[in-house]
Amino acid sequence: MSRSTRLSRRMASLGGRKALAAFITAGDPHIDYTVPAMRALVTGGADIIELGVPFSDPEADGPAIQAASERALAAGTRFQDVLDAVARFRETDDSTPIVLMGYLNTVLAQKAFAERAQHAGVDGLIMVNLPPEEAEEFRRDHAGQALDLVFLVAPTTSEERIATIASQASGFLYYVSFKGITGADRLSVEDVAAKLALIRRKTDLPVVVGFGVKDGETARQVVTVADGVAVGTALVRVMAETTGGVDAVTAALTARVAEFREAMGH
């Protein structure tokens, strides 16, 4: 699928630059933080924003992102709040792609999801528990044709299946760097390099590597073989650990993202 979307345009315009996808959970610790935090990610050098949709049962996430989801839900965050945050962000930034990341059930529960998401300015979806076999039906009944569906490829994904996944995916492929949950410290650059070589034989889509990209040094090593990295837990931790209100949190976020950006080159 080669439509022109914010995501495809951004990936195409990177040139030699490696993509930095930055994740935070919407509504963590309160929805008032979300738009300033998104802007802070861009200021720090993020190319793509992955906005986590809080869910009661985040079965693929480690403790840090689980806790972020729980904080967001405890603060009363609803799906419409997430879309409203995207729309407010779009008032000042019309070029940074926004990908909602989360679990199917929160999307399935929405009426007119595709229209509302596009209207707000969402560009794509990463649904952790959506298999490519269900993608066609999911597009037809829920996601519509305009949003990019980003799929995950895992260390255990067979070669044949990589091709199936790539045929359903658009924007980029998200390579899960190890067997495990978000935030675990198990990434091996050699293993990632070997699998990426396999993936590139099956698809021309850019490949972004996530799970376990914990610091700038890891990011630097990963982008020697990947088109970009996704950083989540490290940023969610900054949000959880920084006291002093919105300004302090956004400053700390920008600084942390900049560390990754610096290590990956500009």
């Binding site: 199917l104 952790v128 528990n129 298999p131 076999e133 269900e134 067979s158 299946r161 899960v176």
Partner: peptide
């Protein structure tokens, strides 16, 4: 064959588990 009971069932899991 792919685990559906009508519209129900299926295999909605993180990709890592598919091979297992």
């Amino acid at each position: 064959e792919d685990g559906h009971f009508g519209q129900f069932g299926g295999r909605f899991v993180a990709e890592t588990l598919t091979a297992a």
